[in-house]
């Protein structure tokens, strides 16, 4: 048996809201989850930056130092006279 009276706008909307919200009024779990994520998000940017620097900064420094050293050696060999370089090589070779 159906209701001959059409549902009023307010009743329709109330029924819709009720149907969509089983358990929606208990906001404690939502609140806990949001506040926890807020705490994590607040800490994370600085923490991540520190972690990255601690892990990679020494390695990066070492790599850059090696790169500079190699560059300096290359510069010395290129800028100096070729015969001089050959002399150094032959001296090193004769030492062996």
């Amino acid at each position: 048996m159906t209701n001959p009276e059409p549902m009023s706008d307010a009743r329709l909307e109330a029924a819709l809201a009720k149907a969509l919200g089983p358990g929606a009024d208990d906001t404690a779990p939502l609140s806990r989850a949001v506040l926890s994520r807020m705490a994590l998000d607040t800490a994370s940017p600085r923490t991540q930056l520190t972690e990255v620097l601690v892990t990679h900064l020494p390695l990066t420094g070492l790599f850059l130092a090696a790169l500079l050293f190699a560059g300096a050696i290359g510069h010395i060999f290129v800028s100096s006279d070729l015969t001089e370089a050959m002399t150094i090589i032959s001296l090193i070779g004769s030492g062996i």
Binding site: L20, A24, T27, L30, A33, V34, L35
Partner: peptide, 30 residues
Amino acid sequence: RHAMAQVIRRHGPGLRRFLAGMLAAPHEAE
């Protein structure tokens, strides 16, 4: 943060219902 908790208490229920009706995958409403 207490203000945030109040905002959640005030708007949380309606927002959950809104998202339950809006989302194609309603289990993602939370």
